[in-house]
Nucleic acid binder design. Structure first.
Length: 273
DNA sequence: CGGTGGACCTGCTGGC
DNA sequence: TGCCAGCAGGTCCACC
């Protein structure tokens, strides 16, 4: 589900609820996430204060007092939602974190592809999940030259290369397709065929598009919500994603969908060559 | 080695 | 109304 704009929106909406608050209780209702939840590690979080909430790629990091970091990944269907304690539990609520004074945080995830992991600041980058995280999309180092180094040596389709978190961390299938629409490149183009000019256009489009999506609080189809259970609005601004059969916003053509690998690509057959 | 395809899950939608 | 196939925003691993 959530790509960088959704994860960023979740972080921003969590901060007013949780910054400066101390964890008073943790309840584990379901341990079977992508990696089994370590209940004892979560219990040791009781008494720790939330000093910061940040993200690295699509990972959410709760910076806790001492040297502790609580890491989340939302997978496809994960949600972190702040609710009043009296709110009835829903199916697929897997973790409940109490902050006292009527503040509860719940982790909800029907597909259980998400991840909750406790680690330390000093060993954060030793985690297999974070060890090879690529550049943040807003990092000034994300240039046409940077991307060109990867594309020229790769036979992969450019859509798949953009999904590789080791190169750029935070893009998913929606925004990879949208970036290729913005830069007039067909998603199935083999990476080595891109020109330096095209990688420059991609590098420039990435922060612009993601910045827009963040301003619209992300993309919600059915189930993405922020910490206040609000949907995003960017689905109304998509150029190609999930628009199979609908008119291109630029030319008279109709958007096409292809199954590439196990996931769909969307593009305008006229604008994107 | 790089690249592809399937596995991991549940829920929803659309066709019959 | 029910049933079934296909699809979904991500990641990881086995296999060419």
């Amino acid at each position: 589900m959530p790509e960088l704009p959704e994860v960023e929106t979740v972080c921003r909406s969590l901060r007013p609820h949780l910054l400066g608050r101390t964890i008073a209780g943790v309840t584990v209702l379901e341990r079977r996430l992508r990696v089994p939840v370590d209940t004892r590690a979560l219990k040791r979080l009781i008494g720790k204060r939330v000093d910061g909430i940040t993200r690295m790629g699509k990972y959410i990091l709760f910076d806790l007092s001492g040297d502790t970091v609580w890491l989340f990944h939302l997978g496809m269907s994960g949600k972190l939602i702040c609710v009043p304690p009296e709110m009835p539990r829903r199916k697929h609520d897997h973790l409940i974190i109490e902050f006292g004074a009527g503040h509860h945080l719940r982790y909800h995830d029907p597909r259980r592809f998400g991840l909750s992991l406790v680690t330390t600041k000093s060993s954060l980058l030793d985690l297999p999940q974070l060890r090879y995280v690529g550049l943040d999309p807003f990092d000034p180092g994300l240039t046409g030259d940077y991307l060109f180094r990867f594309t020229r040596a790769s036979a992969r389709r450019i859509r798949d290369l953009l999904l590789d978190q080791r190169i750029v961390a935070g893009l998913g299938n929606i925004y990879a397709n949208e970036i290729l629409s913005l830069t007039a490149i067909k998603p199935t183009t083999r990476a080595y065929r891109l020109t330096r000019k095209q990688t420059g256009a991609i590098a420039a489009a990435i922060p612009v598009l993601l910045g827009d999506a963040i301003r619209w609080c992300g993309t919600s189809f059915s189930d993405y919500r922020d910490a206040d259970d609000r949907s995003g609005e960017f689905q109304n601004h998509l150029r190609v994603y999930d628009r199979n059969g609908e008119p291109c916003r630029i030319c008279p053509s109709v958007i096409k969908r292809l199954a590439v690998g196990t996931r769909s690509v969307f593009y305008c057959p006229t604008c994107q060559k």
